[in-house]
Design a protein around this nucleic acid. Structure first.
Length: 402
DNA sequence: CGAGATTCATGTGAAGTATACCTTTAGGCTTAA
DNA sequence: AAGCCTAAAGGTATACTTCACATGAATCTCGTA
């Protein structure tokens, strides 16, 4: 056994890698220069530049669809800004926070707590009054003279969940600060998001607005080519594959991130197969693998009750019921609950859980009225049937049932 | 036959509750002068 | 007397429950042609 494994490792090491520098395709990689986003880079740089003269930059609001380079551009600029500030000895602090991360920054309290943690002070996960948290944050920020740029990524998710009070407080905090100044950079995938905002917040948050249009297929192809040259060895990825991949991504509203991930995973798959180059088949497989990983990952991190609800739905789907309704799900769910000794939640809560699973893209849900026969959700799985066995066993394992 | 009322099953918002955790405070115990 | 530990008191955020009202089209009702 041991021999077999060590042999495997030897073989693994002997195997030619297709990559030169896989890092380049990783999501958090920031290239030295950014293609097809010159305009936005200039605009944002211009807006944030006053911070180097110790003046408060305007608040910025950035929109654009997923994978249109918003986060990348902002990180790129802030990195450089920080470098320059350090050279010039300007006291500048930049905090980046992704509001979507569940259980990290998805409520007012947790967001503020996370910010304070970024300053290196520990804060309990619950128990403190929220205004106490604000005070702590305020004191830390104001404790020395500095400029603070706060980047709130996926800010729409946060506001959807707990309103715009946080933003109001954050925009107002400047009036109180003696030593420091705070600028906000909001990033949102939702283009109409600001329209539902309190007008006061809206006006102060979007002093400047920048829109990231989606990339078209050619642009994605450019970006991809550049990264592929750096990431892969020569002649491993052919132009045709890049074009296909770009086309895939352009189809999905120009999501460059997806295109990069696709090539990376395709490369990994090709390498695993000891194939000398990446071909179109690898792309197809990569697409499936990414989807599978995404789903498996979201399911794994779901609380037990959500998993059980999903389990019930899958079981019903397998009994080839073509339409699944909320009430039916609840019945089956309760059955499974009593079987595995879990205390069942109310239907109200299950209704919310189903909505959550819809948000994660695991279910497709439509609210329909069936006239005389009431109003309900029509539920279907957004998972490819071929993945089901794996997911079922995953669920059974974590639910400890069969 | 058709307009309006009715109905059903659940969506959905608001308010209340349970739980887990926090800080503060008062009391009891120990210790050192 | 001062210092330290413990436990109770009083407070909070979050996940969930309870209550109550909203929805919206199939179906029913009833006046009318």
């Amino acid at each position: 056994m041991a021999k077999k494994i060590s042999k495997f490792f030897e073989k693994f090491l002997a195997r030619d890698t297709l990559f030169k520098d896989k890092q380049v395709l990783q999501m958090n990689y920031i290239p030295d220069d950014i293609t097809h986003r010159d305009e936005q880079v200039d605009q944002i740089a211009e807006i944030l530049a006053p911070s180097l003269k110790k003046q408060k930059p305007s608040n910025v609001f950035i929109y654009g669809k997923v994978g249109s380079g918003k986060t990348l551009v902002v990180k790129y600029i802030t990195n450089q800004l920080l470098d320059t500030a350090n050279k010039l000895n300007v006291p500048l602090k930049i905090l980046y926070i992704n509001c979507k991360l569940k259980r990290v920054a998805d409520t007012e309290y947790r967001l503020m707590a996370q910010l304070i943690r970024d300053f290196g002070k520990d804060i309990p996960t619950t128990g403190l009054p929220t205004d106490e948290i604000y005070k702590t944050f305020f004191n830390i920020v104001d404790s020395k003279k500095q400029l603070l740029i706060l980047i709130l990524d996926e800010i729409d998710q946060l506001v959807k969940k707990c309103g715009d009070g946080i933003l109001y407080n954050l925009t107002r905090i400047n009036e109180e600060l003696k030593n420091s100044q705070l600028s906000l950079v909001g990033i949102s995938n939702d283009l109409v998001f600001v329209d539902n905002l309190d007008p006061r917040v809206k006006s102060s948050l979007s002093e400047e607005e920048i829109i990231f249009p989606p990339y078209n297929a050619l642009q994605i192809q450019d970006i991809l080519s550049q990264r592929v040259i750096k990431a892969f060895k020569e002649d491993v990825v052919h132009q045709g594959v890049i074009a296909k991949c770009a086309a895939y991504a352009a189809r999905e509203h120009g999501d460059a991130r997806r295109a990069l991930e696709l090539t990376r995973v395709a490369g990994e798959l090709a390498e695993r197969e000891s194939s000398p180059s990446v071909n179109i088949e690898h792309l197809d497989k990569a697409e499936q693998k990414i989807e599978k990983d995404r789903i498996v990952d979201t399911i794994k991190t779901q609380p037990l009750q959500c998993q059980l609800v999903l389990y019930a739905i899958i079981k019903m789907y397998l009994k080839k019921k073509d339409v699944i309704l909320t009430g039916e799900v609840y019945d089956i769910y309760k059955e499974h609950c009593s079987r595995s000794g879990l205390r069942p939640l109310t239907q109200r809560r299950i209704s919310d859980i189903i909505a959550e699973l819809d948000m994660f893209g695991i279910l497709n849900v439509k609210v329909i009225s069936k006239g005389r026969y009431g109003r309900t959700r029509e539920i279907s799985l957004a998972i490819q049937p071929s993945m089901l066995p794996k997911i079922i066993s995953l669920l059974e394992q974590s639910l400890n049932v069969s």
